[in-house]
């Protein structure tokens, strides 16, 4: 009848988190007879009676409503095939590509061509992880110039920060336009120096996100 871990402990797969029936298994955990175990490498957290583990690494799992950065890999009759930086490709249907009407005979490659990167929103995910994307929502667009960097997808919330505080800090200090995709791809556009500084700041957040005083560290780095 006891807890075997503390809040924010790093736990490994198979590590016992609690014994007895007082606690309930939450995200990334499971119960086997008397014990609750972690299923991933991550940070333990305890909310009331529920134990969960927040992954520190691992693949991105597509969710409806997520904004992701992805690449056009093919053009079909009905739209575009898109590489999502996951094990699953996605479809962007003609009707979901822009808010304007696309005529039947229009050349789709004039709208998006193979190799283009876009910011798009996930509008549907099936049980087999087939993904539908849309670019009709505000803020969705084709990415021109700049650079795209890839980070651990589990660090995306920390790069964004509370109410966008971290990303705003980096944008302002480096004078760089930044779009963060939930799939771990981040687009940066500014001067080469600004982009590099922003890139380094983001990687610093990625590395130090589990440590105390992160904002101060980043402020110091950017000053």
């Amino acid at each position: 009848m006891s807890l075997l871990t503390k809040e924010r402990d790093i736990v490994i797969p198979g590590e016992a988190l609690a014994e007895g029936m007082d606690y309930l298994p939450g995200e990334n955990t499971y119960r086997e007879s008397e014990k609750i175990y972690s299923k991933v490498l991550g940070l333990a957290s305890i909310t009331g009676r529920v134990l969960k583990v927040t992954s520190l690494s691992g693949p991105y799992i597509p969710r409806v409503g997520d904004k992701i950065i992805c690449k056009v890999t093919d053009i079909t009759f009905s739209g575009w095939r898109i590489d999502t930086n996951t094990a699953y490709s996605a479809m962007l249907n003609v009707k979901d590509a822009t808010a304007r009407f696309i005529r039947k005979e229009e050349d789709l490659s004039k709208i998006l061509s193979i190799g283009d990167y876009v910011v798009a929103m996930i509008v549907n995910v099936t049980s087999q992880n087939l993904i539908d994307l849309s670019m009709k929502e505000p803020g969705m667009h084709k990415l021109l110039g700049g650079r795209i960097i890839k980070i651990n997808t589990h660090k995306v919330p920390r790069v964004i920060g509370k109410q966008g505080s971290m990303i705003t800090l980096i944008k302002e200090r480096t004078q760089t336009e930044i779009t963060v995709g939930q799939n771990g791809l981040i687009w940066l556009k500014g001067t080469p120096e600004g982009e590099l500084k922003a890139e380094q700041a983001i990687h610093l957040v990625e590395e130090k996100s589990h440590l105390e005083g992160l904002t101060e560290k980043i402020q110091q780095f950017l000053s």
Binding site: I12, P13, G14, K39, V40, L41, S57, G58
Partner: peptide, 12 residues
């Protein structure tokens, strides 16, 4: 390496 990759595993 599997744990480091974030692959869900029931045990080590």
């Amino acid at each position: 390496a599997l744990a480091d990759a974030g692959i869900p595993m029931k045990d080590m």
